[in-house]
Design a protein around this nucleic acid. Sequence first.
DNA 1: TATTGTTATACTCTATAACTATA
DNA 2: TATAGTTATAGAGTATAACAATA
Lengths: 151, 151
Amino acid sequence: MTPSSALDRLLELTTLLQADLARFEKEQGLTTARTHLLWVVGRSGPSTQQALAAALGVTPRNVTGLVDGLVASGHVTREPHPGDRRAALVTLTVLGATTVDGLVEGHATLADALFGHLDPARLAAFTDVLGETIDRVGALMAAEADGGDER
Amino acid sequence: MTPSSALDRLLELTTLLQADLARFEKEQGLTTARTHLLWVVGRSGPSTQQALAAALGVTPRNVTGLVDGLVASGHVTREPHPGDRRAALVTLTVLGATTVDGLVEGHATLADALFGHLDPARLAAFTDVLGETIDRVGALMAAEADGGDER
DNA sequence: TATTGTTATACTCTATAACTATA
DNA sequence: TATAGTTATAGAGTATAACAATA
């Protein structure tokens, strides 16, 4: 077993998980970007588009487009912001809330289907390696940002 | 340690790996879709656009656009297909081949940075779980396809 | 008649820049 | 003067449908 084959499998698994999410989205008539926004609103509650832009790491202009689409599909509404007439609060409709619930439930179901059969020791060992790997990628990217951004 | 937290970490790691690849692409003036095409041509050798469309899982029309971009950036050329005047063979230029080499090397370097420190037993255990998980996602998607596609 | 690739058209995600209304 | 959001414009990825050239 080599580091390279571990990375290969990790990337393959990534591809499969994305395909699985894509199917949910297609079923719901959603896209990845809109689903992500919906998810954030579900977690954070009614949010300004500025806040969503920051949370999603995209421009405010982009959020305008995503929210337009989600308003058209009936997943969210723009409510007036009490206390700031410039801003709007993107708010889940019943359909939007139901969709988010489906996401949460799907996540739990998927986790159980993938890892529920592992005995606690194997699961813990696996999760530990994932955690270490996250740390290492983070460190790597920080290092490259230092070296690459140099000016 | 719960199945759900394992999935959370897996998804977090996925996000980080994508960000890492995105930086390489930005450096090279490439996009994810074009890099993927380049990668496939690097592995398969000169290919028709039909073959690339099948390999990438996109429409032939889409491949036309991707190849147009990669021709403009100097990564590939369209060479006449010997024996079929309808078809063109998408072929790596020196720049394209160099870029693919960089990808391969980056992959190996990344794998080593992420997993090189693990002792063989932990690495094997981790890789095993990844393999099992891949199988489970595959089975899951096949099952859903059966149930969902029913008509 | 079937296949390869392209033109035509459309939708989505993304970005920058300029502008309006409000703070 | 600064902030929230939109209009304007542009590039990229994706799709379907119609069409040309060639098999």
